[in-house]
Amino acid sequence: MLELRLVQGSLLKKVLESVKDLVTDANFDCSATGFSLQAMDSSHVALVALLLRSEGFEHYRCDRNLSMGMNLNNMSKMLKCAGNDDIITIKADDGSDTVTFMFESPTQDKIADFEMKLMDIDSEHLGIPEAEYHAIVRMPSAEFARICKDLSSIGDTVVISVTKEGVKFSTRGDIGTANIVCRQNTSVDKPEESTIIEMNEPVSLTFALRYMNSFTKATPLANSVTISLSSELPVVVEYKIAEMGYIRFYLAPKIED
C-alpha cells in the first residue's frame, strides 16, 4: 500500500513538466526515504535524478519498496487536470497495475481521482558517486535559462568556462559567435539573485545546448541553479526543491575525437 499526500501539488506538476521532454518512460521508486526517479534519455548522454523526501509530504505511507513504471507524457496529461492550488495524493495498492492520482481543491469542495495504467520498464540505474568538482557555479535559475535560450539562437553547443574572472558561456554558429560572462556577485540584497563561483581549478567543457535548454524547464522549481563542473565528468545541473529534495540533470561533455 502506497499513499503519498502532497499539499503543494503544483510541485509535482512542475517536476513532470521539467522531465517529460527528456525521458519518455520512467520508473518512480518509492521507499522510506522518499519518492524518487532516475532515468536516462534515449541516447544515454543525459540523466535526470529526482528526489522528493518523505518528510516533505503531509502524509507518507509506503509499506514496502515499490517501483512504478509510468509513461511521463500520460502522467503529465493527468497532472495537468489538477489545479495549481490542489493537494495531490498518489495511491497504489501492492501488486496493482494502476496508480491513482487524487486532486483535492484547497476548500475541499472538489475531489477528483484519475487512475493511470502502469507499465513494465527495464531501466538501468547508474551509481553516481560523490565527486569533487573543479568548479561550482550558483546563479539565478532564470538567468541561466535566458543564457541557454539566447545562445541556442546562435549555435548548437555551449562552452562553459570557469576562471577567476567568472563563468563564461560561449557559442559559435554560421552567423557568428557569442560570449556571455557572469561575474561573482554577492552584493545584492536577495541571496537568490546572487552569482557565486567556487573554483578549485579552471575548467572548460562543451555541451549540447539542446539538452541544457531541456534542463531549464525545471526553472519554475527553484530560484537558483547550481552547475558543477569537472574536466573528467558529466556536468551536474541541480535545482533544489524547497524543503523536499532536488532535481539533478547530468550531461556528458563533448570531447575531441
Binding site: V45, L47, E124, L126, G127, I128, A208, A252, I255, D257
Partner: peptide, 14 residues
C-alpha cells in the same frame, strides 16, 4: 567532437 555515454562515466547497478 563526440559524446560518450553516461554509462562510461558511472557504473550500472540494479
Amino acid at each position: 567532437c563526440k559524446v560518450q555515454s553516461l554509462i562510461s562515466y558511472y557504473y550500472k547497478w540494479g
